[in-house]
Simulated scan of single mutants.
Amino acid sequence: MRSITFNACGIFALAVAMTIANGKEPERISRDDCHATFLVPNGLEYVEVNGAQISGNNECYIAFRYTGDLKTKSRPNPPSTTDDWRWLTDFTLTVKGESLGDSLAQIKSTEGLERPGMFNLISSEHFQIPGGEVYVLRYLAAKPTKNMLRLNEVEETIFAAGNDSRSVSYIQYTGATMTKKDKNKAALYRSLFSSFNFKNSTTTP
């Protein structure tokens, strides 16, 4: 586990508290501010962010870095802004104080995933987890644009978990044929989202 702290001026210090070794049993993290717990699968390192500014209906941020073969080899120096901590992580999940249904509807609308002629739904999974449920939805661009091909974003997979009070989601962008690295990341996301345990939906923030 890593810890990132910063002051109001946006000056950051990265302190290493402990790292997750390959082969170690997944660590369960409890976040009261997220009203949830989750397991950190091998291949990911949980980064604790202290003092992040929360806005809107966001309840908390959950940050990670890749380890092993997926580890980022180099990282640019972060800018001096209040969002510097994001530069020190590989991806972040935002737990929102909105239902899973509303969150999915917003994602689909924003990304245009179900707009006629844009993307086709090629697979859909739905299963229950403690205190909530998970969706894994894969979409493939019907007519990929040059920009989609250039960015290797022909396929999009939505990983979403939550209940009728809060939700968390992530979109993985890949090419039409997933690379080994893409598949490894997808397996990590699936494992992570499947491990969420949400508190009772009647819990208030």
Rank of each mutant, 00 (worst) to 15 (best):
F6G: 12
A8N: 14
C9T: 02
F12W: 11
I20V: 14
A21R: 13
N22P: 03
N22Y: 13
E25R: 04
D32F: 13
H35E: 09
H35S: 12
T37I: 12
L39C: 01
N42F: 08
G43N: 00
G51R: 13
G51P: 00
A52C: 12
Q53D: 02
G56E: 02
N57H: 10
N57K: 13
N57A: 09
Y61R: 13
A63D: 10
A63K: 09
R65D: 00
R65G: 00
R65I: 00
T72G: 04
K73E: 15
S74F: 15
S80E: 13
S80R: 09
D84R: 02
W85M: 03
W85R: 01
W87C: 09
L88P: 00
F91V: 03
T92V: 15
S99G: 08
S99M: 10
S99E: 05
L100E: 07
L100N: 04
G101H: 04
L104T: 00
L104A: 01
I107G: 08
T110S: 06
E114W: 14
G117S: 01
F119W: 08
N120R: 07
Q128T: 09
G132Q: 00
E133S: 10
Y135M: 10
L137S: 12
L140V: 10
L140Y: 12
A141H: 05
N147M: 15
M148E: 03
L151M: 15
N152W: 07
E156T: 01
I158K: 06
F159P: 00
D164V: 14
S165M: 06
R166A: 02
S169M: 06
I171W: 09
T177P: 02
T179I: 13
K181S: 15
D182T: 03
K183R: 01
S191N: 02
F193G: 00
S195H: 06
F196R: 03
N200V: 09
T203N: 11
T203S: 13
